[in-house]
Design a protein around this nucleic acid. Structure first.
Lengths: 188, 188
DNA sequence: GGCCACCAACCGTCCGGCCGGTTTGACCTA
DNA sequence: TAGGTCAAACCGGCCGGACGGTTGGTGGCC
């Protein structure tokens, strides 16, 4: 979110933030143009000035999200020690990162994905592109065949548990799981 | 689906099948009471005779699905050789099974989950119960700590790629991935 | 006759999208 | 610097359609 101080956020940004907040806190079906406009302190007409249709709004949300995720992965890659499993360890570093609002972050991502997918599955294309890019970087990672795929799938699975509010590992289980993941990402 | 021959399917069953078909083929937002009734050759009033609300319909879909999945897991467990990682190998056997319509099966499950979740996340409780049961069986599986969790997450991740129509491994990648999964499910 | 299964027309609500305004502020010109 | 111009940004009421749910029936079978 645009939580930096300084000039007040533009109406466009406020609408995007509001839409994400509604989807995350009240669910996909609560995300209507009127609700987003109201939370962003913009009239419905004003919202439609920036996003001529609901699909345009969702598309903009997805593009912004995909941009952030690309940048986050690149940062994780740069901050990860080179060597065997570089791209894979970077991916795990990002998914397992313990910053305090990890849960909120995942919930926000999940809500945007669900809202967009509900309207039109094709809207997820920017996310598919990110996934493809990471898979390509993993290809020459020096890990045994199937290993990178397995770890990517596991990472996706943890995320899915968040998306659908399924079983979330407790702290101890998470620690063991993370250790196993990291071990497999560095063992040829 | 109820594709056995014999007495014609009851209206109730036809409606459940129709609802699943619509969700799978045309997406969650196309699943309306009218559409389901039409496809099932039942009037809207007739549908509401069996399912007094949309929520009741979705709940029935979920319960039927959860029942099938419980039975499928039990069958897989019985068909799996005992020993280290029994419950985990059974889980993998089911998710990786190569029966010809695996893709359709996953798509159908995904659609039901999405439709129910969209209406009310609490409707997924029967699925959560199944997941909890499998986790409990895995607890005393004789695998190193974190291993069962990892493999369960990977299994979920493969399923999530299907749910959101994301990257699906090609045949070669799938073979390597399956080999790696099975190896890890049998190695202490 | 009476009940079960089903029908078809209808209703109220909500939501996406449109439209005719109105304010704001940047830029020009004399 | 006062006045004028114009477009970008924004307003809020309205409409049409779709969807979930209701109601008053109707035919067949025990």
């Amino acid at each position: 979110m645009d939580d930096t101080y300084g000039p007040p956020a533009s109406a466009r940004t406020r609408v995007l933030d509001a839409a994400e907040t509604i989807a995350a806190e009240r669910g996909v079906q609560a995300l209507t143009l009127e609700a987003a406009a109201r939370l962003a302190h913009v009239s419905k007409g004003g919202l439609l000035y920036h996003f001529p249709s609901k699909e345009a709004l969702l598309q903009a949300m997805l593009e912004r999200l995909a941009g952030e995720l690309h940048a986050a992965y690149d940062a994780a890659f740069a901050a990860t020690a080179p060597g065997i499993g570089h791209a894979t360890r970077a991916m795990l570093h990002w998914t397992l990162s313990e910053h305090p609002r990890r849960r909120e972050r995942d919930l926000r991502i999940a809500s945007v994905l669900l809202a967009a997918f509900h309207h039109d599955p094709a809207l997820l294309d920017p996310i598919r592109a990110l996934q493809t890019r990471i898979r390509e970087m993993q290809r020459d990672d020096g890990l045994p065949p199937g290993r990178a795929s397995l770890l990517a799938a596991a990472s996706d699975g943890l995320f899915m548990a968040e998306v659908f509010r399924l079983h979330r590992p407790d702290e101890a289980e998470m620690r063991d799981l993370a250790a196993e993941l990291n071990r497999l990402a560095a063992t040829p």
